[in-house]
Design a binder for these strands. Structure first.
Length: 310
RNA sequence: GCUCAGGUAGCUCAGUCGGUAGAGCAGGGGACUGAAAAUCCCCGUGUCGGCAGUUCAAUUCUGUCCCUGAGCA
């Protein structure tokens, strides 16, 4: 009935076995894995961002992992374009695309569409950033109340990022955010998506996260940061803002000890996992599984695929 | 043993010229349309070290004891 091609989405917080579940599925049906994690795109940080290992990637094709230099920025819109392209490639090969990742915004943007706001010229962007640094987000928010009252009530005066974004969009396009959100066509991705989530309580997940960070350190996370630093020393480069990267960089610079870096790293990872859990709680139509149930996930996926046949 | 300085929220510390107290971090909940591993919002009763004294009233003043740190012996 449903003419739309099938895609599988594997989501959940860090460290819940999404990669191994994807590989389990790929053993049942021809499939390729496509990343939707905003950090695993960076080529300088395969260990720290927990990208699938070369052995794991040998199980089936993996796309959109480790291809971006540290100084380059990834955005939701750029991701959507890359992912749509990757999905088409995989479908063209007669394989099942498996979207795997933890960046909720990226997945939502891909599946529900994102407003086609044109790219903002760098000088306008910089101009707004300079202003917000100087005058504070509250000033821009007060102006937003004039230019876009509807959006202004939705974002907080202290929110530096969203106030900057709203200001640059209005300045560059002459249209406010509300107009772009409402009057532009959202084009949802034309796929029949099966969403599988990995669910776990935070306090159960935490020791796993700590253990995984120790493994990363044992695998040479510090050397990875050192090598990345040799290639890109600017600590404010987009790639350096990832959790683990920033802490190890501070350690390399002698600002904190390795032990302090590790403790911070665990703490920040835990807080991040909490935010992810909050995000995915709201996401609709998810089939939930516990971490480690890779075969159960694969069963669920094959069931779903055969149900689609009828 | 003596002299200082401290003992206040899970942690680091403010503060109360006497009317039982509040920040940051941690923790919990939430938001999320091009930086999202980002950005931001909401949530604070704790014998204010113990005991006694002064006082209408002590966490705040006084005495004493206990504990911690530094210095002197």
């Amino acid at each position: 009935m449903d003419k739309k091609p099938a895609i599988l989405c594997l989501l959940g917080p860090t460290g819940t076995g999404k990669t191994s579940a994807a590989i389990a599925v790929s053993r049942r049906v021809p499939a390729s894995v496509i990343n939707f994690d905003s950090r695993q795109v960076y080529s300088d940080f395969p260990i720290i961002t927990a990208q699938p290992t070369p052995e794991e990637q040998a199980a089936c094709p993996h796309l959109l992992y480790g291809f971006l230099p540290t100084e380059e920025k990834m955005t939701a819109a750029r991701f959507v374009a890359l992912a749509l392209d990757a999905i088409e490639t995989v479908l063209g090969q007669g394989r099942l695309p498996i979207l795997v990742g933890g960046t909720g915004l990226y997945l939502r943007s891909l599946l529900s569409g994102i407003a086609p706001i044109p790219e903002i010229p760098e000088e306008i962007r910089q101009q707004v950033l300079d202003r917000i640094a100087l005058e504070g987000p509250q000033k821009l928010h007060a102006e937003l109340t004039e230019t876009d009252p509807e959006y202004a009530v939705r974002i907080h005066p202290n929110d530096t990022q969203r106030n900057a974004r709203a200001a640059e969009v209005y300045l560059a396009t002459g249209r406010n955010m509300t107009w772009w959100h409402a009057n532009s066509e959202h084009i949802p991705a034309p796929y029949d998506a099966f969403k599988v989530g990995m669910r776990i309580a935070l306090d159960v997940l935490e020791p796993h996260l700590a253990g995984r960070i120790d493994e990363m350190l044992a695998m040479g996370a510090l050397d990875e940061a050192k090598a990345a630093h040799a290639r890109c020393a600017a600590s404010d480069a987009p790639g350096w803002t990832g959790i683990g990267c920033a802490e190890l960089l501070a350690c390399l610079r002698g600002e904190i000890s390795l032990d302090e870096a590790r403790i911070l790293w665990v703490k920040n990872t835990r807080a991040y996992a909490k935010r992810q859990i909050t995000w995915f709680k709201k996401e609709s139509e998810i089939e939930w599984f516990a971490p480690g149930q890779s075969e159960a996930v694969a069963d669920g996926v094959t069931d779903w695929l055969s149900r689609r046949e009828n």
